Simulated assay, not measured.
Amino acid sequence: MEVFERTVIDTALDKAMSYSEYKALVSRSIEKGLSTGPEQSEALLNYSKLNDRRMKRLDKTIKLSEKARQRALSFRGDVIWLVLTESWCGDAAQTMPVIDKIAALNEGIDFKVVLRDDNLELMDQFLTNGNRAIPKLIAIDKKDGEVIGEWGPRPTTATLMVKNYKEQYGKLTPEFKQELQVWYNKDRGQDTERDIIELLG
C-alpha cells in the first residue's frame, strides 16, 4: 500500500466511530431534521428516517447461520472493518447490522464506521466503477495497517440485480430501488453474510 493511502486511512481511523455511535449519530441528526452529509433535502431526511427504523429492526431480527457463526468464532486474525457510509443509504442500512453481528462474535474484528462525505480522500481510493458507492467496507490488518480486502456496496445477488437492470434500462428507477429493498427483506441478510465471512479468509 502506498504511504499516501496509509496516511489517508490513518486519518479516517482517527475519526472513526463504533456502529452503536453511528446509529446514535443518525438518530440525533434525524431529531434535528437532518441527514448526515453536507447535502440536505426532504428526500434524504426521509431515507434516513426509514434507514434508522431498518437498522433498529434488523439489529433485533437478523440471525446468523451456524456456518457464519463458526467461521467468525474460529477467526484468528486482528483486523479493522472500516465502513464508509451515510444515513440516507438504503444498502448500508440493510447490510451493516449483518456486519455488526459477525464482528461482535470475535474480539479480533473491530467494526468501525466513518461518514463518506467527511472522508472523500479515502472514498476516492475505493471507488466502484468510478463511483463513490456506499457502503464500502475496507478490511485492514491491525499489525501492519495493510488493506487485506474490501467489500461493497451491495451483496453479490443485489449487485447482479443492479447490473442487469442498468444494462436493460440504463439507470435505476425508484420502482427498481423499491424492488431491491423487497429483495433485501426476503433475503434476511443471508447474501450479505456469505460475502462478509469470505473476508475472514
Results as ranks from 00 to 15, higher is better:
R54T: 13
F75S: 08
N46E: 13
S74T: 07
K67H: 10
D117M: 04
K56A: 13
D52F: 13
I102Q: 01
R54L: 11
S35P: 01
W88Y: 11
I62Q: 00
K101H: 02
A24L: 12
R116Y: 06
M55W: 08
S48D: 04
Q40E: 10
T36D: 04
L82F: 04
T36H: 08
L58N: 10
A24F: 07
R76E: 15
D52E: 14
P38A: 04
S48F: 01
M55H: 03
T61I: 14
I102W: 01
R71L: 11
E107D: 15
R69F: 09
K60R: 14
I109H: 02
I109K: 01
E42Q: 14
S65K: 07
L84W: 03
V79F: 13
G33W: 09
K63V: 15
F111P: 03
V83E: 12
S41T: 02
K60L: 13
D52C: 13
D117A: 10
W88E: 09
R28H: 14
R54P: 05
R54W: 08
L105G: 07
T36L: 04
L115C: 03
D78P: 10
E42N: 15
L44E: 00
T61F: 07
K32L: 12
K101F: 05
S87Q: 11
L45I: 07
S74N: 15
Q70A: 14
L82A: 04
D78R: 15
N51K: 00
L73C: 11
V83G: 09
S41A: 04
L82I: 02
S74L: 09
S87L: 05
S29C: 07
R28N: 15
L73H: 10
S65I: 00
K63R: 11
L82K: 03
C89H: 07
G77L: 12
G108W: 11
S35E: 01
A68M: 06
D100Y: 13
A72Q: 06
E39I: 14
L58T: 07
A43P: 08
T61A: 10
F111I: 05
G33I: 06
S74V: 06
L84M: 12
L73A: 12
D118W: 08
G108R: 07
T85L: 12
M55Q: 11
I99Y: 02
L82M: 00
K67E: 09
F111S: 02
N119M: 09
A72D: 10
S48K: 09
I99N: 04
N106R: 02
T61R: 00
T36F: 00
M96H: 05
L115W: 01
V26P: 03
D52T: 13
L34W: 12
W81F: 06
D117H: 13
P97I: 03
L105Q: 11
V114S: 10
I102H: 02
L25Y: 08
L84F: 06
S29N: 14
E66R: 00
L82N: 08
R76L: 14
F75A: 12
D59S: 09
D100H: 14
N51F: 05
V79G: 02
N46M: 12
A72L: 06
S35I: 01
I109G: 06
